[in-house]
Amino acid sequence: MSELPAFLAEHPTLWVAIASLFGLLVGSFLNVVINRLPVMMEREWKRECRALLAEEDNEQQAAKDEPFNLIHPRSRCPSCGAPISAWQNIPVISWLWLRGRCGKCRTPISWQYPSVELAGAVLAGLAAWQFGPTAWGLAVIVFSWTLLATAVIDLKTQLLPDVFTLPLLWLGLLLPIVLSEHHVTLQDAVLGAAFGYLALWSVYWLFRLLTGKEGMGFGDFKLLAALGAWLGWQMLPLVILFSALAGSVIGIAMILALRHDRRIPIPYGPYLAIAGLIALYFGEPIMTVYLGGMA
């Protein structure tokens, strides 16, 4: 097995191409997760509420519900219900071939599908190019894909599922133990997780005490804690700064260009994800330049 990473290291272009191609396929699966996981969560909440309220026997209601998970039912057009065949599921190519429309009813297919697929490929290719065929490179690919799915779900539903944020947090804490090539120490990862959570937790309660409103959700705390675990506590100021800048720029653009109602809350998760990726790839050079300018 050690010969394969060595071979790929000698042929970096091949490794980047393989990672990018696999990223396309994973991006297609991420679209399924993005569309179905919030529905699965909502159904689970309803089952729990029915059980608590004892409105009807939970087993009887469960029997009535159509199975709905990441595998069932088969993918189909949300407009006409036509099943999506295998050739219509080829990442990006099928969307282009169908000209962005359902093959049966010609209803437009969301740009989300090719965008997430391409993003999955770009993120995987970037990690493969930057870190090579290493364990840390593979970890960064998983990290990037998780941030991608988390950001899109939050953008669509204003939910940051624990099924993403908590495993990402724990994996970030475990990597310094199992990966010798990881540049973040266990102490820095633990402090990053703690400070990341407490930073937004403090802002949340301060804002709530001053205004009586909730400015963000607890999922944002967990996501920043996960970023702190992966990047170390030293990168948290950059992540917070870049997320605030991204939120300001994109938020103002949405208000001006798309006439977005400023009273409608804008999810913070996508900006944290963008800032986390920027800090991952450019954080150390930025900190070096900043600290050099301070000297």
Rank of each mutant, 00 (worst) to 15 (best):
L186C: 03
G132V: 06
T211A: 12
R47H: 05
M235G: 07
K46T: 05
L8P: 08
S202R: 04
S75H: 06
N89R: 15
P167S: 14
P237Y: 08
L14H: 04
F7T: 09
A124Y: 04
A226N: 14
R50P: 00
S110C: 09
A139T: 05
V122Y: 06
L147T: 01
A279K: 01
L98G: 09
A257I: 13
G212K: 14
D57W: 03
A193M: 07
L171Q: 04
D162W: 00
A149R: 04
R262V: 12
L258H: 02
R47A: 12
L8F: 15
V140Q: 14
C105N: 11
W95R: 03
P114D: 02
S79G: 02
W233D: 11
Q88K: 08
I177M: 05
P161Q: 07
P285D: 04
A135F: 10
E59H: 14
L277N: 07
G228Y: 03
L52P: 02
I286Y: 08
L210G: 04
G276M: 08
I84F: 02
A193V: 12
W170H: 02
T165L: 11
V92G: 03
C102S: 03
L209R: 15
V142S: 01
P83G: 07
V190E: 10
I274M: 06
I18W: 09
L160C: 05
P267A: 10
Q234Y: 03
E56R: 07
L8I: 06
F221R: 15
A19L: 03
P73D: 04
E10N: 12
E56V: 01
V163P: 00
V203E: 05
A193P: 08
Q158G: 01
S248Q: 09
G137V: 09
L174M: 13
A295I: 14
G292F: 13
F143I: 11
T211S: 10
A273W: 11
D162Q: 01
N58G: 10
L30H: 04
I90N: 01
R101K: 14
L227T: 12
E59I: 15
V163M: 05
S28T: 07
W170F: 15
A139Y: 09
L148R: 00
